[in-house]
């Protein structure tokens, strides 16, 4: 009797371990698949509406025209509010970023050594804005499989402000629906809800709602008038173009 019991325990352990290794394998695959969907090379033009909502529910709206080439060249030109119209940000590979302030008529290269700082009043930090693929930045572990989504835990490979991320990936289309961010003390402090729509051949994040749970501050990023496979080239992402 005792023996049988022991064997069944062993069997159970084997089963569990086996399952873990199995899901670790597939979790990594799923995240890679998501990266392919979300970061599929894009040559894109579109408009961006950024809505900042503070803890009292007060909204502040910014609008920008966004051009993007591949995953690592992006030019954002703000059109609203009036006080920020014309401010442009050019992001190039390897964390190179240029800023143009029309009131000064000059561009400056800007950098942030601290990736955990929020970008221009949004709830997205420089780290969140980076176009580095999840599978490169994180180790993944399957937590559970729900009806529509895979729930996967991501732990950073390098030092990070996040202790872990929990990501919900759509089973059918492999885009992320939800990301929960946990701080170094293990508390959930940020949460992003994604809404993807299909534009042509691509899945496009038409809305991202990022909430800072500690500050009770929300940023809604909406993309519209999105066009893919446009005629943008590297020449459209130069400092000269930024100042124009």
């Amino acid at each position: 009797m005792k023996k049988v019991f022991r064997i069944s325990i062993l069997g159970l352990i084997l089963l569990l371990v086996g399952d873990i290794s199995l899901s670790a394998q597939s979790a990594a695959d799923i995240v890679k698949k998501m990266d392919q969907v979300v970061y599929s090379p894009k040559n894109m033009k579109g408009k961006n509406k950024i809505i900042l909502i503070d803890k009292n529910g007060k909204e502040e709206v910014r609008e920008a025209i966004v051009n993007q080439l591949g995953n690592n060249k992006r030019l954002m030109r703000f059109t609203a509010p009036a006080s920020q119209a014309g401010i442009s940000v050019l992001s190039l590979p390897n964390d190179v970023m240029y800023l143009y302030l029309p009131a000064y008529g000059k561009e400056r290269r800007i950098a942030s050594s601290a990736k955990n700082q929020n970008f221009a009043g949004t709830d997205f930090c420089y780290d969140d804005m980076e176009s580095v693929q999840f599978s490169d930045k994180y180790n993944s572990k399957m937590l559970s499989t729900e009806k529509d989504v895979f729930i996967i835990e991501l732990t950073p490979k390098a030092k990070s402000d996040y202790s872990k991320l929990i990501i919900h990936i759509n089973k059918e289309h492999y885009y992320n629906e939800l990301i929960q961010y946990f701080d170094k003390a293990g508390n959930k402090f940020k949460e992003a809800h994604y809404h993807f729509t299909k534009v042509g051949n691509y899945w496009s994040a038409s809305e991202i709602v990022m909430t800072d749970l500690k500050k009770n501050h929300t940023t809604k990023m909406q993309m519209y008038d999105v066009q893919y496979d446009t005629n943008l080239t590297d020449d459209d992402f130069t400092v000269r173009k930024l100042v124009e």
Binding site: S83, Q84, I87, L99, L101, P102, A103, Y104, K106, R108, I110, Q117, N118, F119, A120, G121, T122
Partner: peptide, 25 residues
């Protein structure tokens, strides 16, 4: 840092645009 010296700019537009970078700090 924008090259115009350690002073408060006279134009409000400049201040508003500098704010863009400080916002969220």
């Amino acid at each position: 840092a924008m090259g115009e010296g350690l002073a408060i700019p006279d134009e409000k537009e400049k201040i508003e645009q500098l704010w863009f970078l400080l916002d969220g700090q």
